[in-house]
Amino acid sequence: MTRTIIQGAVCALLAATTFATPAFAGECPANKAGASLLTGAPTMPKGVTDTVIGSVDLNAEIGVPDRQLRTRRLVVQPGGIVPLHSHKDRPALIYTVSGQITEYRSSCTVPILHKAGDVAREADGISHYWINHGKVAAVLLSSDVHHGN
């Protein structure tokens, strides 16, 4: 049953990312790529629920110890914050299901607005945080390769 749920979540994420136009809408504009120090970044979450909806032990599946492929559902309320964190050695894809949310990224000199249907690629050791400046909750699906079991 759990495996079926995981496969369904992964298929839904793949379908969403395959047919999204453009594939990675909401990326840093090419002329705005560059280092951002993220000075004063929030370090505590606010108004966020984070629910793991499925995971796969990658050691059992493909021989990668101490790693999971997991999918989470995050709901970020208006004014909510996903605090500063790093994706060093933890790649992820984030699909915005509904609402919109602003990302502040170490590799972009301007904030990035993610709208429903956008996919954010989190890799290459970036650090970032997210704030919902909107008036409705932002719902996100996050699939990442996570340390631990």
Rank of each mutant, 00 (worst) to 15 (best):
T18F: 02
A41H: 00
S107Y: 12
D57Y: 01
M1W: 08
L38I: 00
A92M: 03
G125Q: 10
Y104N: 14
G26T: 02
E27N: 09
H87Q: 05
A9C: 01
G63T: 08
P22T: 01
E61V: 11
S86Y: 01
A116S: 14
E61I: 07
S98N: 04
T102H: 07
R67F: 06
F19R: 11
I5C: 01
Q7C: 09
L37D: 10
A116W: 15
V97C: 02
L13C: 01
A120T: 09
G54A: 01
Q7G: 05
Y129R: 06
V119N: 14
A116Q: 11
Q77V: 08
N149G: 11
L93A: 12
F24T: 08
G134D: 13
L13A: 03
P45V: 06
R72L: 14
E27G: 12
R67H: 11
M44F: 07
N149I: 08
R90D: 09
I5K: 14
G80A: 10
G117T: 09
R72D: 06
G117M: 08
C28K: 00
M1L: 05
L84H: 05
A25P: 01
S127F: 10
T18S: 11
R90W: 00
C11E: 14
L84M: 13
Y95A: 05
I62Q: 13
H85M: 09
T17D: 05
D57S: 04
S106F: 08
T51K: 11
S143T: 15
I131A: 10
H133G: 11
S86M: 02
V52Q: 13
L141A: 04
Q7N: 12
A30N: 00
V76Q: 06
A92I: 01
E27W: 03
L37R: 13
F24Y: 15
L140I: 08
S55A: 05
I126H: 09
L37G: 04
L84W: 02
M44P: 00
N31G: 07
P45A: 10
A15Q: 13
A20I: 04
L38Q: 02
H146L: 14
H87M: 05
R70C: 03
T43K: 07
Y104C: 04
A138F: 05
P45G: 05
I112C: 14
T17N: 09
Q7F: 04
T109V: 13
P65T: 11
V139T: 15
A16I: 01
T102K: 07
T18W: 02
E27C: 09
V56K: 03
I6P: 00
I131D: 07
Q68A: 06
A138N: 04
V48N: 06
N132Y: 03
K135C: 04
A120K: 15
C28V: 02
G99L: 06
D144K: 10
G26K: 05
T21G: 02
Y129M: 09
V64M: 15
G8N: 12
A12R: 12
T39V: 05
